[in-house]
């Protein structure tokens, strides 16, 4: 456990000045800021709309862009950046000759990639809530204050995070095995486009394909219910999320098995 914690700290220390780390802060900041600006500039057309509608329209800018293309691509990038730092510096051999178990080194690297993704999603949640409320304060005609959906937002972004874990495990393994940029990124990009096509065409088994799961997660987020129109519930654990989690766990262990057997160059 100590080796794992030391390795995790070292991952942060190594990446704290790289785009891999800052990307998980810049991406949510840029998109929510864009959403904030869009609503602020066009505040007239949103004036006096019901609070719930405002929140949905505002947060859908983040959710829509992340759910379709950005989340899979960003996940691919995170998986690439945490491994590429070792490929570039030729440091796999030193990492695996440290007096730390291979399991701790591998596990900490994966956990760090997960941490970056989780940080990104948490920031999306916080910034959406923060900017939404800020809009309500500086433009009182926008009735953001009338409705609260903090819990629902947190649930949706959590659901998105879980739906991306299948991609994370697959891409993590690809980026670990291949030192170049093109192979893992190219494959990931093709798979993402395929996933988007499958999910937008409502193919019934799209939920089984990891790269389609973020989009499937957005589609399956609202629980079917016959209640009052101003209330809705988020369904976090849907089929696509379960499949994503299963793929993530299986590929993670397969990856470790490969790392254990593989020669370190």
């Amino acid at each position: 456990m100590k080796g794992f914690l030391l390795s995790f700290r070292s991952e942060f220390y190594k990446t704290r000045k790289t785009l891999g780390f800052w990307g998980s802060i810049i991406l949510p900041l840029a998109i929510t800021l864009l959403a904030f600006t869009a609503i602020y500039v066009k505040s007239n057309s949103f004036a006096n709309k019901p609070g719930m509608m405002l929140w949905i329209q505002f947060s859908m800018i983040s959710l829509g862009s992340m759910g379709t293309l950005l989340l899979p691509i960003y996940t691919i990038f995170v998986a690439y950046s945490v491994n590429n730092i070792e490929h570039k510096a030729d440091t796999w051999k030193t990492l695996f000759s440290l007096p730390i178990s291979r399991w701790a080194v591998y596990g900490a690297k994966y956990a760090y990639a997960f941490f970056l993704l989780a940080m990104c999603m948490s920031l999306f949640t916080l910034l959406n809530i923060g900017f939404g409320n800020l809009l309500g304060v500086i433009k009182p005609e926008l009735k953001f204050g009338e409705y609260h959906m903090e819990k629902e937002l947190a649930q949706v972004f959590f659901k998105l995070l879980l739906s991306a874990l299948g991609i994370l495990s697959i891409q993590f393994l690809l980026s670990l095995l291949w030192s170049d940029f093109l192979k893992p990124m190219g494959l990931g990009f093709i798979a993402t486009v395929t996933g988007v096509i499958l999910a937008t065409n409502n193919w019934e088994y799209a939920y089984l394909f990891p790269y389609a799961q973020p989009m499937a997660a957005i589609k399956s987020m609202i629980k079917n219910q016959r209640g009052p129109a101003d209330k809705f519930e988020i369904n976090v654990f849907t089929q696509d999320v379960y499949v994503s989690l299963i793929v993530a766990v299986v590929v993670f262990f397969v990856g470790y098995y490969i790392v254990q057997k593989r020669s370190v160059k």
């Binding site: 190594k14 510096a89 030729d90 440091t91 000759s97 007096p99």
Partner: peptide, 15 residues
Amino acid sequence: LKQIGSLIEQPAIYQ
């Protein structure tokens, strides 16, 4: 490994 220090081929350094 706790008692070994090593330098293999080119030094592994984060640039």
